[in-house]
């Protein structure tokens, strides 16, 4: 986002003639974002093949310093952006979460390449985490295996555009502008397999139900599970066949609130759309108020 001097000087505040074009007046959010987006320091942090392309992006041919990603810092305490450049393994995700927790806020995560976005070609591997977003909030995904430097640059510019849209005033947009200190992400535990502490309850529930149902767990025999699923599908199909031609209304699920799930989802979507529109309108009025201020 470029600051247009003509525009920002068009203000209701009286600017002395001799200082015209020397003073810019804008909103605090915009100024703050303008500073932030143009000084995003990535962490010097390479995981796998993508790291080589990340280095190529940093070096002379592509040179991301031109866009404000000035210099890579080896310590997380001086970095604003974590580029997850490569396959995230279960063994490595523990240090990655620790590094993320050490970064000062506001902080961003860019998942570079297929592996960091969703496991990529190694997804089926027993030591591979299928995507960084299983543990950390990811802001931008850059596809490719590995992404070309051009693609990475595009992803980084997309991140800058995302920052432009954020506001200090809005705690919903950005967690660290909300009230109270931000919670650190819990560090995963390396037990018999990796365990996400946030999902302890879920794991316990699943383990219990599966164990009670047919002693599935621990056999590591997923075919048994697929058989179970297949059996359930079969009985369901049989029931449908028995019931004869399907009446669509009969199939609909009624929630305690009285609506159907999809109606409710649509409702939520509509509300969200209206809210977004309202916010957009508010911004537009503010902007016109600013320009009309003269």
């Amino acid at each position: 986002m470029d600051l247009n001097l003509q525009e920002v000087n068009a203000t209701e505040f009286p600017v002395p003639v001799e200082l015209e074009n020397n003073i810019a007046i804008t909103s605090l959010s915009q100024l703050y974002n303008w500073g932030r987006r143009n000084s995003m320091w990535p962490m010097l942090f390479g995981l796998a093949c993508c790291a080589i392309e990340m280095i190529a992006t940093a070096s002379s041919r592509f040179d991301f310093s031109r866009f404000g990603f000035e210099v890579m810092r080896a310590t997380p305490r001086q970095a604003d952006l974590m580029i997850v450049s490569g396959t995230v393994t279960k063994k490595m995700v523990v240090p990655i979460v620790r590094l993320y927790n050490q970064m000062p806020e506001p902080k961003y995560v860019l998942a570079m390449g297929a592996c960091a976005s969703g496991g990529g070609p190694f997804k089926e591997g027993y030591n591979v985490v299928s995507g960084m977003d299983k543990y950390l909030p990811v802001d931008v995904y850059v596809p490719g295996c590995p992404p070309t430097p051009q693609a990475l640059l595009y992803g980084m510019i997309a991140l800058q555009r995302k920052i432009d849209g954020q506001s200090i005033a809005n705690g919903d947009d950005v967690p660290w502008y909300g009230e109270g200190p931000a919670e650190p992400t819990p560090v995963p535990v390396l037990g018999p397999d990796i365990i996400d502490p946030r999902q302890m309850d879920m794991i316990r529930r699943q383990a219990e139900s599966a164990a009670s149902e047919m002693d599935l767990l621990g056999q590591r025999e997923l075919p048994a599970l697929t058989q179970l699923v297949a059996a359930k599908v079969e009985t369901a199909q049989a029931a449908v066949a028995e019931a004869g031609p399907v009446d669509e209304d009969a199939l609909s699920v009624v929630l305690p609130t009285g609506g159907t799930p999809w109606a409710e989802a649509e409702d939520i979507r509509e509300k969200r759309r209206l809210r977004a529109l309202a916010r957009k309108a508010l911004r537009a009025t503010r902007r016109t108020a600013q320009t009309e201020g003269e």
Binding site: G119, K123, E124, Y126, V128, V129, S130, K134, V189, L190, G191, P192, D193, I194, I195, D196, M200, M202, I203, R204, Q206, A207, A210, A211, D215, L216, L217, G218, Q219, R220, L222, L225, T226, V229
Partner: peptide, 24 residues
């Protein structure tokens, strides 16, 4: 692949896993 996994993730645990006393 997640759809076919009990935990919806690339993990599987032994049956006697004790989540209350988990040691890394």
């Amino acid at each position: 692949a997640e759809e076919k996994n009990v935990f919806g993730k690339n993990v599987s645990y032994p049956p006697d896993i004790d989540l209350n006393r988990l040691m890394d």
